[in-house]
């Protein structure tokens, strides 16, 4: 959602300022009272924001230049942690998996969500109950959902596959390093498709009906209408979904903790899981440096995506 706002780029307009002229000139006392009220209104947000967001971020930056283990003594090591990061395969493997997962999830989720949104927007019977069902995953805890699916993938699916004679599916995918990502993508998609679908649905409702009517009069086929009307109108929502989705999937944590715990080995370990491990793992400062590198990379990706999409959009 956040990027959606950045995209629309709507700063609060100068309405109050411009309308200020029409305002009766307040007496000095009333003006001062008003100022204090406004200051007090800003205070809680700025205070909480500073204490719990800015200060911890700065502490993290500070410790990333030290050897702090999370307890005990520490000393400055300069860029030592950062240098070590770039030569540590246990760091790069999670980076690889995290980006792989994010890209696969973005593609899978957007294709399916768009299909579902088109289906829900089309002329189908029992639309409301069907829509309710599709949106249920949105309100459920991803962790609990992942536990349920873990059982399905570990027991139910292999048992059914076995009775049907489908040998490759008869063993659990989660135990094999080369296939463990498939159930993870499945559950991630299951939980995040509704939110993505909702944005497409909002986009579809914004397409003026007259466009389709005019196109049918001109004899355009359904496919042609989809390509020439629906797709261009949905482009901006596609961009929003890709940027939001990518950022979300890069932070993947709950579902993987529940399904594989990062295993087998570290084949499904994500960067977030690695960083969280720094709390009790004795490498607090090292993971603080890791989190900053990760932050810079995700920020660059978001900015590049935004830049590319802006260019594409203005064509």
């Amino acid at each position: 959602m956040t990027q959606a706002t950045a995209l629309t780029g709507a700063p609060p307009a100068g309405t109050p300022a411009s309308a200020g002229a029409a305002r009766p000139v307040p007496t000095r006392r009333v003006g001062a009272q008003r100022d204090w009220a406004f200051r007090l209104m800003v205070f809680p947000a700025v205070f909480l924001f500073t204490v719990f967001l800015i200060v911890p971020t700065l502490i993290g930056v500070f410790f990333s230049f030290t050897s702090y283990a999370g307890f005990g003594e520490w000393e400055f090591v300069g860029l030592g942690n950062y240098v070590a990061l770039f030569t540590d395969p246990n760091i790069w493997a999670p980076y690889g998996f995290t980006f792989f997962l994010a890209i696969v999830c973005v593609v899978v989720v957007n294709v399916l969500a768009m299909a579902i949104a088109l289906g829900l927007n089309a002329n189908i019977k029992w639309r409301t109950p069907i829509r309710t069902v599709f949106f249920i995953p949105m309100v459920l805890s991803a962790l609990v959902v992942a536990y349920v699916f873990t059982f399905l993938f570990n027991s139910t699916l292999p048992m059914i596959a076995d009775s049907l004679g489908l040998v490759p599916l008869a063993t659990t995918m989660l135990a094999d390093a080369s296939t463990a990502w498939i159930p993870i993508v499945f559950v991630t998609a299951w939980t995040s498709i509704p939110g993505t679908t909702l944005i497409y649905l909002a986009g579809l409702q914004a397409v003026p009906r007259e466009l389709y009517e005019a196109a049918s009069v001109d004899g355009a086929s359904a496919w042609r209408q989809f390509r020439s009307i629906t797709m261009p109108m949905l482009a901006v929502y596609l961009v929003i979904n890709i940027i939001l989705g990518f950022r979300g999937y890069l932070g993947a944590y709950d579902i993987i903790v529940a399904m594989t715990g990062g295993g087998p080995g570290i084949s499904t370990m994500t960067v977030s899981m690695r960083i969280m491990g720094g709390l009790n793992g004795g490498d607090f400062a090292y993971q603080a440096a890791n989190s900053l590198v990760f932050f810079v990379i995700t920020l660059i990706i978001s900015l590049v995506q935004l830049r590319v999409s802006r260019k594409g959009m203005s064509l």
């Binding site: 609060p12 947000a45 700025v46 932070g251 977030s272 709390l279 932050f295 920020l299």
Partner: peptide, 24 residues
């Protein structure tokens, strides 16, 4: 300035601050 300050929060990911936050 307050607006821009608060807005910067959109770009700070949770993973960066979680470790110091828990200490704090």
């Amino acid at each position: 300035v307050a607006y821009i300050y608060l807005l910067s929060g959109l770009f700070v990911p949770f993973t960066v601050l979680i470790l110091p936050l828990i200490k704090l």
